[in-house]
Design a protein around this nucleic acid. Structure first.
Lengths: 219, 219
DNA sequence: ATAAATCTGTTGGAAATACAACAAAAAGAG
DNA sequence: CTCTTTTTGTTGTATTTCCAACAGATTTAT
């Protein structure tokens, strides 16, 4: 676990906790480290879980998939970020999503019930942990609402512009990279990839944006 | 405030708190009660807020609306439920949604920062409050994911069936009422009302469901 | 370097949706 | 009760999307 100390220090769940106390806290939470190969399934929709995960290496996707194989990407998450915490914290709920490792990954699993239950060693941390967790779920809530804002737009063009504007705002610049390839972007915006590609071409022809692979510029 | 004691006792945010302590806690949180008329705007998208609300009487909608007036209903919330807590808890974020009173309503506003800050009187409650709040935001997260599951379905028919199945499951019966009229349901599922009405008719003709106003039966 | 696999852009036809306009039914007001 | 307003259902057309198939470009593996 020690090799990941630098990463763990930056995890928002542990914000405000002294580095010197971090290792004690981690053992108190009795997290389990697990390794996943590329494309391996971490959580399967329908299962239930009391644990959430923290990405220590690699990258994961949170997806919904229906009978026909239509895939919807809810989020893509990288090093230092949490996943599954909503289901773990809500309890008694089955997962509505699957979690898939999109690259080889190291994931740390923590039982949500450990957050609340005070322990002999590090009781003082627990209340801070829960506050941090509340902040994290609130932020996720907002990012889900943002996704909803994109996908409720009527046309592919509007969806693209809403998403790209928001990325530009996030980056603080008209030039920015996005974390998706074309298929993934289509799955995130819930549109057909080929139609989206065509629309991107039109937007370029109309002089509204430039792009090269994952790199975009709004004009 | 006392006239709402029965309601406040059932609010999930106050779960696990003794009734005898509830009034003390409320004064500690220094909530503000406000009255709204039908169709009055409670929060406006773009504003920022440190407070969240609790519905004590009436009903509110959480909506997103774009330049063209396309309205998307994220949720409809009634007595005993919270709204705006994600934005208040996430801090420094502007509202992505508007909140509208759909009936005459009494709403109690509480500053989110009061939840965390320990106070002289009732410190012991704060940790419980935050745990409850975490549970609430986690549940909201899940209901947003559920909405996403509905609206990412390809066709209006699939969206309807996904939504209605989920309502049937929630009700624990094939017969159930939904909290929306037709226009609201269309706004929730992000489809055209008239097309949705037509599709409902087809579903009935196909013997898949029966309905009368807000009352549905899956066959 | 070459081959294989993946990603991206392009097109045309079939299907589904949005939009507008209107009629019927239901709910609410006076 | 009657009139007004709101809600719901119906239909036709224009628009948009989905799907499938393919070609070029890029990346990865051998």
């Amino acid at each position: 676990m020690k090799k990941y100390l630098e990463i763990l220090k930056k995890v928002k769940l542990f914000k405000g906790i002294e580095e010197s106390n971090l290792m004690a806290l981690l053992s108190c939470l009795s997290g389990k480290l697990q390794h996943y190969e590329k494309n391996e399934i971490v959580f399967m929709s329908g299962e239930s879980t009391n644990s959430f995960g923290i990405v220590l290496a690699g990258e994961i996707q949170i997806v919904q998939e229906d009978y026909y194989g239509n895939r919807s990407i809810l989020a893509k998450t990288g090093v230092g970020n949490l996943f599954g915490e909503s289901f773990a914290c809500a309890q008694t709920k089955n997962l509505l999503v699957s979690v898939i490792a999109t690259t080889e990954s190291d994931l740390l699993f923590i039982d949500c019930r450990r957050l609340a239950s005070p322990c002999a060693n590090s009781c003082t941390f627990h209340s801070r942990l829960i506050q941090n967790m509340l902040h994290i779920t609130a932020m996720k809530n907002i990012s889900l609402m943002q996704k909803i804002e994109f996908i409720t737009k009527r046309t592919t063009r509007e969806k693209l512009l809403a998403y790209l504007s928001s990325e530009a705002k996030k980056a603080g610049s008209n030039c920015f990279s996005i974390p998706f390839n074309r298929q993934e972007l289509a799955d995130y915006l819930s549109v057909d990839r080929s139609a989206m590609s065509a629309e991107l071409g039109k937007l370029r022809d109309d002089g509204i944006l430039k792009f090269n692979k994952n790199y975009f510029e709004l004009l």
